[in-house]
Design a protein around this nucleic acid. Sequence first.
DNA 1: GTGAAAGCGCTAACAT
DNA 2: ATGTTAGCGCTTTCAC
Lengths: 347, 347
Amino acid sequence: MQTVTIKILAEKLKLSRSTVSKALSDSHEISQDTKNRVLAMAAKLDYAPNPYASSLRKKSSKTIAVVIPEVADSFFAQAINGIEAVAQDKGYHVLIYLTHESFLREKAIVKDIQNGRIDGVLMSLSSETTSFAHLHALAKKGLPIVFFDRVCPGIPTATVTTNDYAASYRATQHLIDCGCKKIVFLAISKSLLITGERLRGYQQALTDNALPFTPADILVCKNDMAHNNSLITKLLAKPNRPDGLLSSVEKLATSIYTVCNQLHLSIPGQLKVVCFSNLQTAPLLQPPLTTVTQPAFAMGNTAATILFKALKKGTIGLKNDSEVIPSIMMVRNSTEAIGTPFTEVAL
Amino acid sequence: MQTVTIKILAEKLKLSRSTVSKALSDSHEISQDTKNRVLAMAAKLDYAPNPYASSLRKKSSKTIAVVIPEVADSFFAQAINGIEAVAQDKGYHVLIYLTHESFLREKAIVKDIQNGRIDGVLMSLSSETTSFAHLHALAKKGLPIVFFDRVCPGIPTATVTTNDYAASYRATQHLIDCGCKKIVFLAISKSLLITGERLRGYQQALTDNALPFTPADILVCKNDMAHNNSLITKLLAKPNRPDGLLSSVEKLATSIYTVCNQLHLSIPGQLKVVCFSNLQTAPLLQPPLTTVTQPAFAMGNTAATILFKALKKGTIGLKNDSEVIPSIMMVRNSTEAIGTPFTEVAL
DNA sequence: GTGAAAGCGCTAACAT
DNA sequence: ATGTTAGCGCTTTCAC
């Protein structure tokens, strides 16, 4: 089966290729009459332009890359929806790359997209990433990058984050208000900026309430559920176990609840729990989980909007502007006694 | 900044472009010595091949499209992981397109990927899709397609599904075994083949147990949570409300639980619930949810494997083979009294 | 308003 | 083993 090209259209219409090309892109130098004829023939023959020929020539591909750790995570899934909404609107294609929290994969992916395949990048770092040479190399190519959520330090470009420090401070304060004396902070990385911010908020709240803090109050988990479950089991089986947990990672909520079930620890009676999480099912868990809910859709949407604006203007490199979209705390029964009405706290 | 091309490499090395090209692709007609020199220079100048030039010339792009309804859904998120694992392994890129259950979007997307941008398609239909002309057009172009989960009838190509009929029969039987006399079946579409299969299993189980069935026992929901909640509220507020629900869609579990909370209906006391769902949090809900869990990762993985096999062989069109990977039923407290141990049922 | 011609960067015949 | 040449399909000067 013969693929229909501009050349074929031109022959059928007894026009030159350039005229057909211009007509298809609605150039003002082509008469309306000719445009109509060309469009009609294109429709009739079901002509579809070859995107690679076009990209090669124009040095732009109408494609962006989204590089994220996971897709089976409510935050990133919702962020993708936000990105996709803008992309479909602007006629862009979205290549999705998953690092699975692996630094090596991230490096390989970043290297792989440096060759002109894409016009821009939306990215959230892997939890393992502590060196940034691969990203500096990417930025140096002049490829527009917008980091969202897990941003990269030291690269002068646009970022979209939420108010991690304030949210974490507020969540910790809430645990303290609920009577917690010993709160452990859970993370999956020590290096991510976002972890640092959340940790800082947590520590400041402790300090402001004259509560002690020791490095042992930070539990660093991995991207491995079995391993995390055993870490958390160890933590909660101790005689001097904490009476509050602040998890900076959505996926750890599952581990915490599972372990508490196994140990017959009651939430919130013996342990109060707050989790940074966008889980749809948070209100339906046993007990309903108090969450810091991030504006995932909006963050993806905003990041994409910034990127497309830069692409449109043809800016080489992006302004160093940082959007911050606030999170919301949803107070539920994992921190307060049964019967307390649900409260939503702006941050 | 000058992008490094084969031409530049050739000039620096005082070789011809074709020699460099062949050396880079490790052709046997090039001496080891030359290969080494070329590779060294390529590394030194940080040469990256232009994928569009290559795609244009070779008429293959090392890119596949994944067309699915949603990404914020455990089944599809896990399926993507399965697909991505194979794609990364084979060096393919993955374009993700979301239909959001809209037929119009699906048509637009399918049209958009028909132009040689991609080498193959993995697809799961939108719930609105009832006409298949756009997909026949796609198939006619000779583009390899593998349908998974929500397959398209009438297109002779490979498919990957789970044992929907058997799973649904077994789940219904389980509800009946738990004492249900009036079971309502929830779906988001009447047209999807998969819905039909699940409905068939449900009806057969009713018949085999001499239970009546009326069309009113099917509740067709939409892609709109507020609307679904009100539909389900209407269903459960009736005096002759059902005593069992079989939901063929993951996202409806949230609605069912939310409505039951509002109506103070106890699960499983007054209503027993089974849901086709891959939710990680199913065991942690109040009460733990009995699910039919689909092999999402394996289905994505298998679909991708079949596609890549076809791409490798250069088969025009795919064999009409259908893989079926069984689901598992996880019996939890939404169907059985508290205290009953968790049971896993092979299907 | 239309056409001729060059070239994006790469690959694959076909020489040598 | 290396080089010459043509061309993938499209866009874009530049000429008429």
